[in-house]
């Protein structure tokens, strides 16, 4: 379970973009977080995925309190999250071929054996052809690059997926394909999902539960989520 409690975060301590926000994600649950541009929902997603340290608040992952963020967080805690960002161009090192991009977390973990097969398997899941795997980011389209970024997020079999406006730049068919790939993975692994976006129709269709940003900020303690049967 992910429990974000009274989180305040931002890029300037005097003007935090996230103020006193609480959110809970049950294991295996898919939560959609809706909100207008610039409301701070992406920052909250970054806090939840341990890449942004909040100014204050507590964060429990499966009951264990998070004490460190970014590099300082323990490896196992970091890699429990697969993160997909809004802009694939910004989220991909321009020097890496797609196959290296996807395999990078495996290599960082020192798991070289079987990496290649794992990349090929994931490429199939997200709909990338073998030929595309040999290309660099500037040689593929946004949609193809985002598929690779999703494959990278899945490569370490995370228990949680955090999707920050994953489909905002993509056309309808690519959106549906990526969401289907995420859901396939969740069905098989039972991973939980926090997806952030501004498309109500999409999030309602995708998630077990959608919450609006204003609900998180107005209620000091958000009403506990109804006990839905989780996907696991």
């Amino acid at each position: 379970m992910l429990e974000l409690h009274r989180i305040t975060a931002g890029y300037d301590r005097r003007a935090p973009v996230v103020r006193d926000v609480s959110l809970t994600v049950e294991p295996g649950e898919a939560v959609g977080l809706l909100g207008p541009s610039g409301c701070g929902k992406s920052t909250l997603a970054r806090v939840a995925s341990l890449v942004h340290r909040p100014d204050s608040g507590t964060y429990l992952i499966d009951g264990e309190s998070v004490r460190a963020w970014r590099h300082r967080a323990p490896r196992e805690q970091r890699t429990a999250f697969g993160v997909v960002f809004q802009q694939p161009r910004q989220a991909a090192d321009p020097r890496l071929r797609l196959t290296d991009l996807i395999a990078e977390p495996l290599r960082a973990a020192g798991r070289r054996t079987g990496a290649e097969e794992r990349v090929v398997e994931l490429a199939g899941r997200v709909g990338l052809s073998a030929e595309l795997l040999g290309r660099r980011p500037h040689e593929v389209s946004d949609g193809q690059l985002q598929r690779a970024c999703l494959a990278r997020a899945l490569v370490l079999r995370p228990r949680w997926l955090i999707c920050d406006e994953m489909t905002a730049m993509l056309d309808a068919s690519t959106t549906a394909a990526l969401v289907a790939a995420v859901e396939d993975y969740r069905r098989e692994s039972g991973a939980g999902l926090l997806t952030v976006g501004h498309d109500r129709t999409l999030l309602n269709r995708w998630c077990d539960r959608t919450v609006h940003w204003t609900e998180l900020t107005q209620a000091e303690n958000p009403s506990p989520p109804k006990n839905k049967p989780s996907g696991a």
Partner: peptide, 17 residues
């Protein structure tokens, strides 16, 4: 850049990044 965030999330050490 977000790709550094992605590398952190992928478990890369500071040195490796």
């Amino acid at each position: 850049r977000p790709y550094i965030d992605a590398a952190i999330s992928g478990g890369s050490s500071r040195l490796r990044i």
